[in-house]
Computed example of a mutant assay.
Amino acid sequence: MKNTLLFFLLSFLFVSCIPSVKEADLAKINGYWEIQKVELPQGGKKEYKVNETIDFFSLKNNLGFRQKVMPQLDGTYLTNDIKENIKVTNLDGVFYINYTTNYGKWKEEILEIQDSVLVLKNKDDLEYHYKRHLPFSIK
C-alpha cells in the first residue's frame, strides 16, 4: 500500500512539474527561432552547433506563417519567400501548429513555449528544441 501511494505521489509531482502551454503563451511563438537539438523517440539526440537557416514565425489570432531565413553578418536576413501557412489549434487542452503548403499538410504538438524556449513534437515523436535567435551584426 505504501509503495502504491508513493508511486501516485511521485507521479503527481512529476506531471505537475511539466510546463503546460496556455493560450496566452502562443504570442511568444512570434519571432526568430534557432534549432538546438532534435530528440529521437529511442532516446538519442542530434545536436545543432551552427545553423545556416533559422525559423521565423509570425502568428496573429492563431493564424500566420513560418519561413526559413538566413541570418547575414550585417544583421539582416535573406529569404526565398517560401512560407508555410500555420494555424494553431487547441484539441482537449493540447495546442498544435498545423502547417499547410502546396505540397502537404502536417502538424506539430507544442510541448513547451517560454520567452526563449520552444519545443515541438511531430507525428514521429521527434522533439524539436529551439532557442530564441539573437541577431548579430559586425557593422
Rank of each mutant, 00 (worst) to 15 (best):
K68E: 11
P71L: 01
I18R: 07
Y103M: 13
F136G: 13
G93P: 02
N98Y: 08
F14I: 13
G43P: 02
L40C: 02
V119H: 06
V117Q: 14
D124R: 12
C17Q: 04
Y103D: 15
D124A: 14
Y48C: 05
K37C: 00
F56C: 08
K123L: 14
D25R: 03
E112H: 13
L78R: 10
G75C: 03
E84Q: 09
G64I: 00
E39D: 09
E84G: 01
L120Q: 07
K107G: 07
L91V: 13
P41T: 00
R66H: 11
Q67C: 11
K28Y: 03
E39K: 04
D55F: 01
K45F: 10
L73G: 14
F7D: 12
L126P: 03
L120R: 02
K60W: 09
G43N: 04
K107A: 05
Y103K: 15
T101H: 09
L134F: 10
L9C: 07
W106C: 08
I110F: 06
E127L: 11
D25A: 05
N61H: 08
G43I: 00
V50T: 04
L5S: 09
M1I: 10
K22A: 09
K49V: 12
G44S: 11
C17P: 01
L118A: 08
N122L: 00
F7C: 08
K121D: 01
P19K: 09
Y130A: 04
Y77L: 01
L6C: 05
M70W: 08
G31S: 00
D25T: 04
K28Q: 12
Y48N: 05
K68A: 14
N62E: 10
G43F: 01
F8C: 12
L120G: 03
Y99N: 10
N62Q: 14
Q67E: 15
P135N: 13
